[in-house]
């Protein structure tokens, strides 16, 4: 479903702030894969997500989504294949627009925007049904401005928007990191439910190793812009946090002391 081949990306090349964020990254996602991505700060997790989403062009390598080479396609064109949820709950929705307007924007992802009316009457029923599944009481607040919702509600809404039009790949970039623990658990639960029900292919970056072990059928660990560990299936189910830390130390050669806290958070 997704194929990253030899991706390189350097930020601020030739300056004192030069940062090699992705360093020959290779990754293949099968259809239906739900991958948890972990790694220390600066490992390249978010950079990988942004490379897939096309926030900027990569320096080298190719990106294929479902057999289509999207390497040179701009962000808004790639959006036709992707659903995205960001770390900042404010980033996924338009604050001054109401819930149904936001959903209507998402329902037309990948389509040309015409002069047809922005929301059709029959869509409203669909929105209400979907919002009901969130169990946050949003189904009766279709015309509430999104800016008035809490961070958790906005993130749940963003999840709905990202998956409303069945994306080929769902990108969750630390989408629970800015929420309080209880809300984070709830949003994670909703994410899992949506992914399972719609049989989506998904990548989820997280700082929480427990979450990474508990969710998804596959786990990859990143370090220095490369994937250093890739476990799946039964092997992943039997992982523990201790073992993960141990394997990280072994592979990356003792850098963990700096990253332990970040990984454990």
């Amino acid at each position: 479903m997704l194929k990253l081949t030899n991706i390189h990306k350097t930020f601020n090349p030739g300056t004192i702030n030069e940062k090699k964020a992705l360093n020959g990254l290779d990754l293949v996602l099968e259809e239906g894969d739900f991958v948890a991505v972990i790694g220390g700060n600066g490992a390249g997790k978010s950079t990988m997500m942004n490379a897939v989403a096309g926030v900027w062009p990569v320096d080298e390598g190719t990106i294929e989504i479902d057999g289509i080479d999207v390497t040179s396609k701009p962000e808004h064109k790639r959006a036709a294949y992707l659903g995205r949820v960001f770390q900042d709950p404010m980033m996924g929705t338009a604050a001054n627009m109401n819930i149904e307007e936001n959903l209507a924007l998402a329902l037309r992802r990948g389509q040309a925007r015409t002069l047809a009316w922005g929301i059709r009457e029959k869509e409203r029923g669909q929105y209400r049904e979907l919002l009901r599944t969130l169990d946050l009481g949003l189904e009766n607040r279709l015309t509430t401005k999104v800016g008035l919702l809490s961070g958790g509600q906005r993130q749940a809404l963003t999840l709905l928007m990202a998956t409303l039009k069945h994306p080929k790949i769902l990108l969750l970039d630390e989408h629970t990191a800015a929420l309080d623990p209880k809300t984070a658990a709830k949003v994670l639960e909703i994410s899992e439910k949506i992914i399972n029900e719609n049989h989506l292919t998904a990548m989820m970056v997280t700082h929480n190793m427990k979450d990474a072990i508990a969710h998804g059928n596959r786990l990859i660990m990143m370090n220095d812009g490369q994937i250093i560990l890739d476990v799946r299936g039964e092997e992943k189910k039997n992982l523990t946090v201790e073992e993960l830390l141990h394997r990280f130390t072994k592979i990356s050669g003792g850098e963990l002391a700096n990253d332990r806290m970040l990984l454990n958070r």
Partner: peptide, 18 residues
Amino acid sequence: SAIRATGNNQKMVRAQGI
């Protein structure tokens, strides 16, 4: 609607394919 959203949040608008 797409224009209004652009004034709100460009990142989100691009993620919606606009």
